[in-house]
Structure formats: C-alpha cells, structure tokens
Nucleic acid binder design. Sequence first.
RNA 1: AGGCCUGUAGCUCUAACGGCUAGAGCACCUGACUCCAAAUCAGGGGGUUGGGGGUUCAAAUCCCUCCAGGCCUGCCA
Length: 341
Amino acid sequence: MSESKKIITSGMRPTGSLHLGNIFGALHNWIKLQEKYTCFYFIVDWHSLTTPGFGDAVGYENTKGLQNNIKQMVIDWIAGGLDPKKCTIFVQSHVPEVAELYLLLSMITPLGWLERNPTYREMLKDYKIEYPTYGLLGYPTLQAADILAYKGNYVPVGKDQESHVNLSRDIAGRFNNLYQKNVFPLPEVLMTEVPKIPGTDDVNKKMSKSAGNYIALIHSEQETLDRIKSMFTDPVKIRKTDQGHPDGCVVFAFHKIYNQEAVTVVRQECEEGSRGCVDCKMQLAQKMNQALKPIRDKRKELEQQTDLIYDILSSGANQAQKVAQATLSEVKDVMNLTRKK
RNA sequence: AGGCCUGUAGCUCUAACGGCUAGAGCACCUGACUCCAAAUCAGGGGGUUGGGGGUUCAAAUCCCUCCAGGCCUGCCA
C-alpha cells in the first residue's frame, strides 16, 4: 500500500442484485476509482438495520433476506468489474472495530447535529417512518465510523448523501480538536457526474428497488424485455405515426445510454413520427441485453462459486480489520482508553 | 414497574345498539382499447378482523389473557 495514495471509502446497502441505477450511479465510478486510489468498498449491513423493512425488504424487523442480498450484491460488484486485487471488498459488520469506533464517536457527536440533519428529516417524511429509532438518528455517526476507521479522504456519494459526509467531517474535526491530535483526515465528498437513471415508470423518478421500477443484472433477457415493454412513453403519441416527444420518454432516456451511436436518429425518427414505440422498445432491449450480457454471464459463473465469493469477503474483511484496528488503537490511545496489561 | 391508547386486505380506512357471505379507495394482476406504455373502461385475486380462551342462538364489536406497537408517569443509570 503506497503512502501517497489517497483513500476512498464507500458503501452500499444490501439490497440484492444491482439494478441499472446502482451501476451507473455508483459501481462504474467505483471501478474507475480502484485504479488510482486505495479503495474500501463495503456492504453496509448495519445501515440496513436503521430502518424498518418496507414490504419484503431488509430492515431491523426483517433480516431474512440479508445474507442472500449481500451475496447477490457482491457477485454483481465483481461481475461488473470491481477487482478484489485492486480494492478491498467486505461486509461492514465483519469489522467489529467499526462498531467500537462508532460508540466512541457517539460520545462526542452533538445531538443537535443529528437532529438537524436534513437527510434524517427527509427519511422520516419520504419513508413515512413514524417511530424513528436511536440507530436511525445515529446513522451519520455510524457512517463517520465507516469512513474514519479506514481514514478515508474521499467519499464518492450522490448529492443526497452529501450532508452525511459533511457531518462525518465535522465529527472528525471535533475529535481532532477535542484531543488535540490529528488522528483523522477530514473526509471530503468526491462529486462525479453520473447519468440520472430513471425508473421504468417515470422519467422524473429515480430507479429504485423499493419502487419496483428497475432492471437488475439478475434479470433474464426476457424479464428485461418485459420491463422495457412496460416502460412509460410519450402519452400524446397515440398512433405509431404521431410525432413524439422523446424527452419525456423513459425508453429514449435509455437509448441515450445504451444506443449512443444512434441516439440522434432515434430522436429524429420519434419526433417526425417515423418510429413506433414498439420498434423503439425492441431495439432498446436488444442493445441493453447485448451490453449486459458479459456481466450477466460472469454473474452466473460466480453464482456457482460461492466459496470464491466468501473468500473474497473474508480476506477483504481481514485487510480492512487490520486498518481499523490500527486506527482504533490510536483513537483509544488519545482518549486514554488503552489497557495497561 | 404502573396508567392510558392502538392492532381489520400490501397501504389508508368504513362496518349504529353484538345480527345477512366483513366492505371501499389506492396499489397489484388479467382483459378491452392503443404501434407499446400511460390514461380510461370492464373483470379478478387477496382477510383465521394480532394470537388464544370465554359469554351468546349469533362476536371485528362484550369479557379474560397473551403478544406487538405507541403515549404518559415512576424507578435505575
């Protein structure tokens, strides 16, 4: 591990097989970053317990699908191009030092910071959480522990997570200040341009597992086709020959991603009424399935190699744990918590 | 630990005094219409009314008990 390399930390909630939103929103970025940085990528299983599960999703009251979700997600990370030789891949809870760091950080995290946290408030509103738990309020502190345990410099996250990283920086700064030691680097958001991936039902909505408007790597080509067929299109284009408005059309949004070379033609044909939505969808399905095929083939292969997957997670956890242990002992040192014997 | 409140379809709720096969909206699925999707129309699935016991000819409704959750008070830290 070279000293000069900056450290990246980032996590994903264990929601199972990746969908296109995850892939373009995060994974592609992660893959690029693993080349230049020391990267810690982990599955945040603890974070998935901060809320109740919605429907059959994982939450604190329903952890049934947790292990399978973790497995499917790691398979997709690797099938998609994360290389365990280039980055450290593991499960958050496999490094218990993070929990201890979380505890210590919680002692110095002002309650007001957490209560004021806009993401927390949105969470309560958007997910209609009537009875928030202690764990949910403390989410940013846990995230801070995730970053700081590995002394992360940069955190590649979306705009919605920006305030959390800012909180992590505040907590790190407060710790350094209180104990007059520069234990933690101050983590920064690494903003990157990511294409917005709409849901299959609405260009203005995000693709998400809970909304059910997604296409995942685990889906078959047929399933993908079915989901493309059900995509929302221009409501004023009733007949095949009507002039369409591609900018409000989900199918077109995906042509921009999977059919880049033909996108101007697609737009023109749609606008002038020489292209029907059915043809347009069929073409998209063909392009998308073609693009996803190598990853899907790889994921099928990996699914047969459970040992390999668990070995990757296990050696990832070992590597991460070493780093976290070193950080923690430093932390305990400055807080005078180190055992004499 | 005590007091009070809540529990009915995936979600929000209705079902007077105990009384017909526990209903509706949204969501979901199917069909019709559409190049498709959406919208619209038609149809459909879905419930041991939180569990158990009791009273009664008859319980979602009344009683007991347990479970889960919430609010308040107390106690401890």
